[in-house]
């Protein structure tokens, strides 16, 4: 496998939106979380995150999903001259109730309001991601 966080961000986000618009909240939620994770990792890579030959992060604390990566990202970007890429994000991680293993749960557990929170948080991350993209950081 070769990780491509940039491309993965886009495809997860597009599919997440499509599912959300069709009220397929459970799978939309799963993909919002993955899109957010890939976008954060793409920016971290641009800011100098060490990666292995297969494209995955070298550091264990960076090889995590968005529920853990959110705070890791804020601290990483702040320490790497990337303060502009954390605007709108604080330590109240909106993905703290998201877990990759929720893909095994029953769909009725995913309410539209809970998924909408994750959608909005993904939008914030995408805005930072697009800034980094235009800056030539990605």
């Amino acid at each position: 496998m070769t990780a491509d966080f940039h491309d993965a961000t886009e495809r997860h986000r597009v599919d997440a939106d499509a599912l959300f618009n069709n009220q397929r909240f459970a799978n939309a939620d799963h993909l919002f979380g993955l899109a957010a994770e890939c976008a954060l990792k793409a920016v971290m890579k641009g800011l100098g995150m060490q990666i292995k030959p297969d494209g995955s992060p070298s550091t264990q604390s960076h090889r995590v999903h968005v529920n853990k990566l959110w705070n890791e990202y804020i601290s990483f970007a702040n320490n790497r001259n990337g303060v502009k890429y954390v605007v709108g994000m604080d330590s109240n991680n909106p993905f703290s109730n998201w877990d990759v293993n929720q893909r095994y749960e029953h769909h009725s557990r995913f309410t539209d309001s809970c998924v909408d929170e994750h959608r909005k948080a993904t939008e914030i991350i995408m805005s930072r991601w697009i800034e980094a993209f235009l800056d030539g950081v990605l």
Partner: peptide
């Protein structure tokens, strides 16, 4: 593309 990804204000 950029607008769709939330980059309109930029």
């Amino acid at each position: 593309d950029l607008v769709q990804k939330g980059g309109k204000s930029l």
